Computed example of a mutant assay.
Amino acid sequence: MQNSAVALELEGVSVHAGPRVVLENVHLRVLPGRLVAVLGPNGAGKSTLLGVFGGWVRHQQGQCRWEGKRLDEWSAAQLACRRAVMLQHTHVAFDFTAEEVVRLGRYPHRHRPHPREDSVALEAMAQADVMHLRDAPMGVLSGGERARVHWARAWAQLECPGWHERRALPAGWLLLDEPTAALDLAHQHALLARLRHACEAYGVGALVVLHDLNLALRYAHEAVLVHQGRVRAHGGVETVLSPSEVAAVWGVQPRWLQDPATARMHLVI
């Protein structure tokens, strides 16, 4: 049986936007140490599901629990020290530099800073490949560069899992909404490879909204398929993203193709 004391859970959660039902009676349990891809068509409820877990989307029915406690029993300060968020659209109101934005990820830890606090942000920037942008104003960066800066901010908030100077803190959670959408091919793979390694080696829990089914197949441990406001399937990625399920949800008919060099399965249409 899965351990509720370390899990994130939705129990019978429904979200309404006026007369529209955005999520309906969702039950879902996510464990640490797993990269869980959330997939589905546009408007299926993926971002809303992520927002309920994160607390920025209110639900009308059901319960959201973080590690055995109701979400509303956690203070904002406690949550900020345990989880980091990267949204699809993040507007920076002032013309901060890239480094200043990354350092915002350290704000929740201001009362208990790292002994080498400056190094945390710089390590995160190095891992996100944005060190060369540290003095650049956010307004002049490309969409992909801004996305990598926000990834570095979230990574710094969790003190860069795997970094040799990280303190002995709980591993933490990452809630990422389409983090690869603006990234080029190399950075998409670099981000997800780093995230999967952090889950496996350091116990990070990650809930990641993706549209690329083959990226999910390559890097995720599990998949959650959301369709018409419901969780249609949750489990192993190849099971959830079977050709029959993809055809039923997206209306396209894919087939499996195996990479002869790695034996990894891909979907082709």
Rank of each mutant, 00 (worst) to 15 (best):
H132Q: 13
R103L: 05
A121Q: 02
R146H: 01
H111A: 15
E117I: 04
P170T: 09
C160I: 09
H89F: 10
V102C: 03
T90G: 01
L104A: 06
A84W: 09
K69W: 14
Q88K: 10
V149A: 09
M125V: 11
E178C: 08
L122T: 10
Q88F: 11
E67Y: 10
T90F: 11
Q88M: 13
V101C: 03
W163L: 11
K69V: 03
R112D: 15
P137C: 11
Q157M: 06
E159R: 11
R82T: 05
T90M: 11
L133N: 09
T180I: 09
R70K: 14
S119R: 15
Y107Q: 04
H114W: 09
E117C: 06
G162W: 09
R83M: 14
Q157C: 06
Q78G: 07
E159Q: 15
E165Q: 15
R110C: 08
D95M: 03
V85G: 05
G139N: 15
V140R: 13
C160Y: 00
E67G: 06
H111Y: 13
P113G: 01
Q127Y: 05
T180R: 03
D129E: 14
H111S: 14
E145C: 01
A154E: 05
L122Y: 00
H111D: 14
A93E: 14
R146W: 05
G105F: 00
K69Y: 12
C81P: 04
